[in-house]
Amino acid sequence: MSTREIEHVGLSHSMKRRKQITNAAIYVTLSLLCIFWLLPIAWLVLSSLRGETKEMYTSYIIPKQFTLWNYTSLFTDTKLFSFPRWYLNTLLVAVCSCAITTFLTLMVAYTYSRLRFKWRKRFMNISLVLGMFPGFMSMIAIYHFLKAIGLNQSLVALIIVYSGGAALGYYVAKGFFDTVPKALDEAASIDGLTRNGIFWKIILPTSMPIVAYTALTAFIAPWVDFIFVSVIMKDNYANYTVARGLYMMIDREHMSEYYTRFCAGAVLVAIPITALFIKMQKYYVSGVTGGAVKG
């Protein structure tokens, strides 16, 4: 970068002008795109503050009346829809499945990246193939397996479901591990570390971006999935996650009554994820670029 900047010192006047014009054009484009991208979000936030709570359709964007009732009633009117309970459910499921998924994924990725054993290639190919089946049909079977061991409609079942497929998501992490120099392992091996030791003491510490990336994606999944929860929980509302609960608020029966509260709930879900994303953006970027594309 620095060499290029030095070069630019000598740019002619006209080129400088042209550059200013391009930059101005870029600013304008970016601003327009930003507006386009943020408009639905802004509408969501405004709807969540709307005082006209009985109206689903409004032909205006800015509410006539502002209120926080939509937010407060999510926490006070819990007889039918217990938002706080859903929120805690989701948090619990997200934390547990995030921990389990991260470990499973990294274990598998490390194995495929570093250990050589007879079935390695075969396992990798099988994983690749399994990942290509559309997931819906398997849900009935999963439900009945969980029911057979007495776990249907419980949060434990949900944690299992979210972390059960972890062994398929090794791809990005393996790509990342592949880029960690093998010389590190060798040196450690000479120092007498077992492979277990190498995994914990050498590979993991040098791969924090991918750990963060894996954890982040695993943590977010329970907050946004509404299909698996429906299959597992069915009519057990107490064990719903926020995503499923919110989705219920906008079904045919509840929509007109709960629409503004749905918006408020959605904002409350988006806040922690946005915060996490902004905080971890750096890791996310280096994780995904390091892993997915072997850059």
Binding site: T111, S127, I160, G164, R195
Partner: peptide
């Protein structure tokens, strides 16, 4: 299991969940 056969340690749990919650349901489907 922590060194020479470390792959078994690492792979067993992921493989079990993978079989139960991905592979078998797909065969069923």
């Amino acid at each position: 299991l922590l060194d020479l056969r470390y792959h078994m340690t690492l792979m067993s749990l992921p493989l079990i969940t993978l079989t139960l919650f991905t592979a078998l349901p797909i065969i069923f489907m």
